[in-house]
Each structure stands twice: as structure tokens, then as C-alpha cells.
Write a protein that binds this DNA or RNA. Structure first.
Lengths: 117, 117
DNA sequence: TCTTTATTTAGTCAAATGACGAATTGAATT
DNA sequence: AATTCAATTCGTCATTTGACTAAATAAAGA
């Protein structure tokens, strides 16, 4: 039995610029919360909330790795619309300057330097 | 020169259930504000606002016809994403019971009976 | 021209959203 | 067992959103 999900849930998930930045960053590689926090320059709790919204909409997957929680693009979304969106994410969400910068920064990021201080 | 539009604008436009109902109704036929108002059972001003959001995002077109203002699915959206969404609207927005009912009601609707009382 | 009718705009209000810091949880590490 | 550190949850606050009513526009019709 499926949970009665809100019709607007997937659109709502894409309705925040910071969540779009997160999705696009995850295109590059799997990331933990503190890496994303570093790039977005938001409070950890805020990023965590954004991630839970993206996850509950079906866009991303979570996996625990000891102390860290890794988030990644969901490779097996149940919803075909999400599959389509993710398959051509660059069509749906343009790579503007900010996002290009995010991706550069995230490529250089070293979790061990960033997160443990 | 293009107006600097918000990255989330098209997703925001789709983030409200009543706006989804409107889009789907317009699939059936061109409609004036009062016809939509009748089906959604909202204040006229509320419907007018929803229509302006859908229009400004690029989903629908407006045409004045005397006293009436007719809204219709935008046949020539500049944005390719909107073209894609509109081309397979049933994929992106499922026909649930409510929407099926809306469409039935709108097919039977006679503007002259509904709007002028 | 005065009135009626369809729509939009302005103003108000409650609920939802996105931000934060503080407190809590969970998994290493000492 | 106590501590450390990543992440989540909780409580608060400012802003946005979606609803309404009332007032303003615009186009017919009397």
C-alpha cells in the first residue's frame, strides 16, 4: 500500500534554490551533510531539513557511513517523473554561475579537512 | 533582453493543488475566470491570482474577449521545459478523482448560465 | 451616461516555509 | 564510561503564501 502523497510534493521539493543547488552538487558526487553545509554556507540544521525534503520527495537516497550520513542521487526512484527529472537534470535546472561554482568547490572539497576541525 | 526570472518559478507555479487543477481543466478547453471560480469554489480574486502566477511562469496564455478574459494552455512557451511539461501533462500531473470530476464539470459548464446570474 | 458584470488590485489575516541556535541522538574514539 | 563529532530534532522568528473582502478597472448594455 502506498502512502497518500501530496500531488505537489515533487514540485515543492524543487521550489527552493538551495535545494536545487544541493541536487546539482549531488550530480557530481555523493556528499555528507557537512560538505553541503560548507558550500551553501547555511546552518547544519537547515541543510539537514532541505535534505529530508528532497529525500521524502524521492530525489535522493541516504546511507549511513559511521559518523557520516551520505546523500546521493536516487538511482531507483519509484516515481517515473523523478526518474525523468534526474535523467536530464541539466535540462530542468540550468547550470548558472552559482551552480558552476558550487560544483567546482565540491570537487575540490576534502571531507576530512572540511568536517573535522 | 530577458527578464531575470527566478530559477524556481516554474516549480513554484506547480506547487499549489488548485493551480494544478486549473492547468488540467484548461487542457479540456479555454476558460474564463468565472468558470474556473465556479469549479474550484474559491473567491474570484483568488482564482485571478492563481491564473496570473501560471501566466507569469509561462504555462498559460490570456486573451480578452469583451467582458471576459479567456485563459488557455500556452501553445508557444518560450521555455522548453514548459513545452515538455505541457506536452505530457497527464504524465506530470495525474488525473485523480478530483481532477476527473473537474473536467466533467467543466465540459458541461455553460459560461452564459454560470457567470451571468 | 449610468449601470451592470467580469476581472484585477489592494489590504488583511492565518498557515506554511526557511532560516537560526540549542538540545538530542548515534556512532566512533579515548 | 566518558568524550567527541556528525547529523537530526525542537522551538522560535521573519517572510512568503493562499485565502478572503472591499475597492478599483474595463467593457457592455440600458
Amino acid at each position: 500500500m502506498t502512502v497518500p502523497t501530496d500531488k505537489t510534493k515533487i514540485f515543492k521539493a524543487l521550489s527552493d534554490p538551495n535545494r536545487l543547488r544541493i541536487l546539482k552538487m549531488l550530480q557530481t558526487k555523493e556528499l555528507c551533510v557537512c560538505e553541503i553545509t560548507e558550500v551553501l554556507q547555511l546552518a547544519t540544521s537547515t541543510v539537514s531539513k532541505h535534505l529530508s525534503i528532497l529525500r521524502s520527495a524521492g530525489f535522493i537516497a541516504v546511507e549511513k557511513d559511521g559518523k557520516w550520513v551520505n546523500y546521493s542521487i536516487n538511482q531507483n526512484p519509484g516515481d517515473q517523473r523523478i526518474l525523468k527529472l534526474l535523467a536530464s537534470l541539466d535540462f530542468w535546472i540550468a547550470d548558472d554561475n552559482l551552480i558552476i561554482e558550487d560544483k567546482k568547490r565540491i570537487q575540490k572539497a576534502d571531507r576530512y579537512k572540511l568536517c573535522s576541525k
